[in-house]
Each structure stands twice: as structure tokens, then as C-alpha cells.
Design a binder for these strands. Structure first.
Length: 259
DNA sequence: ATGGTTGTTGGACAA
């Protein structure tokens, strides 16, 4: 089974890219972040025409989640947001089960600037996610936690770690929060398959021509429990859609799981 | 050099 994660930065603006990419990459499941659309306007039919069923959980303008699965696959046990969130809460988590794999798709708060209220919100949200995992799941089950974490784990994941050190997306407190999440019982699947690979990024700022110079960060992750990591054959970042005109600022990451 | 671009919207705001 091939499972992908992609922050599309508006599913309506990116619909042609997404549909083309589904046809080219043939994922079985796609976890999407930043749909930026309320549920009534979600492009469900266009995705069905492309051969994918969808569950979605969105809001106007900001955030918003979706999970797509090939029509032949069932999507079960859908969960929207964390325990304690209400209708007013930012839409940042969507979970389901496909073919026996528990899939948790997250859009971790960006944090804006270190020290800002949004940064405290980011750290608190990550702690709540850790609590949710511990309360609802066990590390022994086949579970995949993926999405836009807005955190680069290590210096090797940043184009210029000296310049980024202590900045939002690469601050010690965020990296510790991500490490706490992983310590629950997860594996960074990309790093397991590519332990030495540098300059492998999933996000490049729209400004300053960052993509052309490969000035990026690896902030989108697919984390697996050990039982699922044992089935993982490869993980790759697909740069193809980032090359197009008016792309998302993120590239998709994909994991290949043995049946 | 605190710049620059994109998306949602119709002026900021978030990223």
C-alpha cells in the first residue's frame, strides 16, 4: 500500500495539480493538509472522477484536512480533531482506518514566531497530540502519523541550520516536542530509509526563490509504529508537483508498505 | 538588508 502526505495549500487552487499527481503517482491513500475550504464546497466529485473517495474536515480560509483513498478501499472509524476541541477549534486533525492501518493526518500549528502566542499554541497542541496517542492507541498497533508538522527534526533537515537555529520551525522546544511524540513509539520513516541524506526537503518558502536554490526544510513527516515500519519498503519525496507553475510550497512524501 | 510570495478575499492575515 502506498500512502502519501501533502500540504496542498488550498485544495481548490491546487485541484488540477492534485488530480494530475494522483494519476501519475498512483497512491492508495493521500493525507492532505491545508484544504482551506468548508465542507460544503469541498471538490468531492472531481476527486471521485479521479477514482478516489474522500473524507474531509474543513473550515473557511485556513487549515482544513482531507484523506483520500482509492475507491476500492473502505475508510472506517473517522475521527475529527482532538478530544476537547469544539466546532470553533481550528481544523487540524483527521484520522481513519484503511486496510487495517490506523492513519492520523495532522496539520501542526505553524507557530508564527518564537515567543508569540501562536508558538505557545503550537507546543500545547503537540502535547495534546502526544496525550491523544497515549490515551487512544498503543505503540504495538499498525499506526501511521503523518502530515505537516512544521518542525525540522535535525540540522541535516535544514538547508542552513546555523541560520535557522532557534527560529520557528527549528527551535529546540519544538524539536523536543516532536521527539516526545516519536518517543511514544514511532519511527521517522524517511530518516530510517535515508539515514545520511541531506538536502532532502519537503517545504521551500515562496519568497526569495527558495526552491530554485533548494533552500528548504524537511517539515512534513510520515511516522510509523515499529510493526508498520517493518513493512516499509521505501520512503521518498516527490518533487514533480513542486516544479509546476503556481505550486504548493510543499512537496508530497510517500511511503511504500508491503502487503 | 526584518526584505520577499501565495491563498483567501476583497483588507488583512497566516504561512
Amino acid at each position: 500500500m502506498r500512502i502519501a502526505s501533502w500540504n496542498v495549500n488550498s485544495i481548490r487552487a491546487r485541484l488540477p495539480h492534485l488530480v494530475d499527481w494522483l494519476g501519475a503517482a498512483h497512491p492508495d491513500v493521500v493525507c492532505i493538509q491545508e484544504t482551506k475550504v468548508e465542507d460544503a464546497l469541498f471538490p468531492e466529485e472531481a476527486l471521485a472522477d479521479a477514482g478516489y473517495r474522500a473524507v474531509f474536515f474543513g473550515q473557511k480560509s485556513y487549515n482544513g484536512m482531507a484523506i483520500l483513498a482509492r475507491m476500492q478501499l473502505a475508510i472506517d472509524d473517522v475521527v475529527k480533531n482532538l478530544e476537547g476541541d469544539d466546532d470553533e477549534s481550528q481544523k487540524r486533525l483527521l484520522a481513519c482506518t484503511v486496510d487495517g492501518v490506523r492513519i492520523i493526518n495532522v496539520y501542526v500549528p505553524n507557530g508564527q514566531t518564537v515567543g508569540a502566542p501562536a508558538f505557545a499554541f503550537k507546543l500545547a497542541w503537540l502535547a495534546r497530540l502526544r496525550d491523544h496517542l497515549a490515551a487512544t492507541h498503543t505503540p504495538s498497533e499498525p499506526l501511521l502519523l503523518c502530515g505537516d508538522f512544521n518542525i525540522a527534526p535535525e540540522a541535516i533537515d535544514v538547508h542552513d541550520p546555523k541560520r535557522w537555529e532557534g527560529k520557528v520551525l527549528f527551535h529546540p522546544d519544538e524539536r523536543a516536542a516532536l521527539a516526545r511524540l516519536i518517543d511514544w513509539g514511532l519511527v521517522d520513516s524517511f530518516r530510517r530509509h535515508h539515514p545520511e541524506t541531506s538536502d532532502a526537503f519537503t517545504w521551500w518558502d515562496y519568497r526569495t526563490g527558495a526552491y530554485k536554490r533548494n533552500r528548504g526544510l524537511r517539515i512534513d513527516h510520515i511516522l510509523l509504529t515499529e510493526s508498520l515500519a517493518a513493512r516499509s519498503k521505501d520512503v521518498r519525496i516527490d518533487l514533480t508537483p513542486r516544479e509546476l507553475e503556481r505550486p504548493s510550497d510543499h512537496a508530497p512524501i510517500l511511503v511504500e508498505l508491503a502487503d
